[in-house]
């Protein structure tokens, strides 16, 4: 048979008279699209607020002058924590000795152990009595709820403490499951000791 076209001889599959259409690539260059895609991703990553802020609950006691309404803390179970300058933490157990001998300095990583130790001491020296059954019932049988009932942490941030320190120490109460804690103003005597300690350590 006569061939009309001479071209397209390279492929011999074609039948006669079939004009070979030029095969266009179906591939699209996607680079600009990817560029745009990632640009948008970057934009949204930067504008997004992934972790919404949380609320830390804080309850303060009502100021009262009436002695009877005040909660008395047992000396044996009290741990007083003071917050000073430069993230320093000071603490003492029970009452502050007049000579300041039980006044100790630590920092935010050390105070956790102190809280845990003190709590364990309180649990060890716990004396069982009839009230425990009631407390257990209220706390759904959590044995520790009665054992550490005498454990009270008193938080006293001083004038130089930052808000961050205050929140951190409140957070420490949650972390260590301390149920009884109170935020109280620092007494002048304690502030003096804190300042003297800060002076000695050259802060």
């Amino acid at each position: 048979m006569a061939q009309i076209e001479g071209g397209g001889d390279d492929s011999h599959k074609k039948g006669p008279g079939v004009k070979k259409a030029k095969k266009l690539s179906t591939r699209v260059d996607m680079t600009p699209m990817v560029d745009l895609g990632f640009l948008l991703i970057t934009f949204f990553i930067f504008t997004t607020t992934m972790s919404s802020p949380k609320a830390l609950n804080l309850n303060m006691p009502k100021d009262t002058k009436n002695e009877e309404e005040l909660n008395k803390a047992k000396e044996s179970g009290a741990l007083t924590i003071m917050l000073g300058k430069n993230n320093a933490v000071y603490y003492y157990e029970g009452q502050l000795a007049p000579d300041g001998s039980n006044f100790k300095a630590t920092n935010f990583s050390g105070i956790r152990d102190e809280i845990i130790n003190k709590r364990n001491d309180v649990i060890k020296s716990h004396v069982h009595d009839a009230n425990c059954a009631k407390i257990w019932a209220e706390n759904k049988g959590d044995k520790n709820s009665c054992l550490d009932r005498d454990f009270v942490v008193v938080i006293k941030p001083d004038q130089d403490a930052t808000y961050k320190n205050t929140v951190d120490i409140l957070d420490e109460m949650t972390i260590n499951n301390v149920k009884r804690y109170a935020m109280v103003d620092i007494t002048p005597q304690e502030y003096e000791v804190v300042q003297a300690t800060e002076k000695n350590s050259g802060k």
């Binding site: 830390l56 100021d63 941030p157 001083d158 961050k164």
Partner: peptide, 27 residues
């Protein structure tokens, strides 16, 4: 983070004056 405790105490005082004792600290 860097605000000082006395200011926070004063704010609490302002709230306490109105018999407000429960607060939520944003963290």
């Amino acid at each position: 983070n860097n605000s000082k405790y006395p200011v926070f105490k004063d704010v609490i005082e302002g709230l306490k004056k109105n018999d407000v004792y429960k607060y939520n600290l944003i963290t």
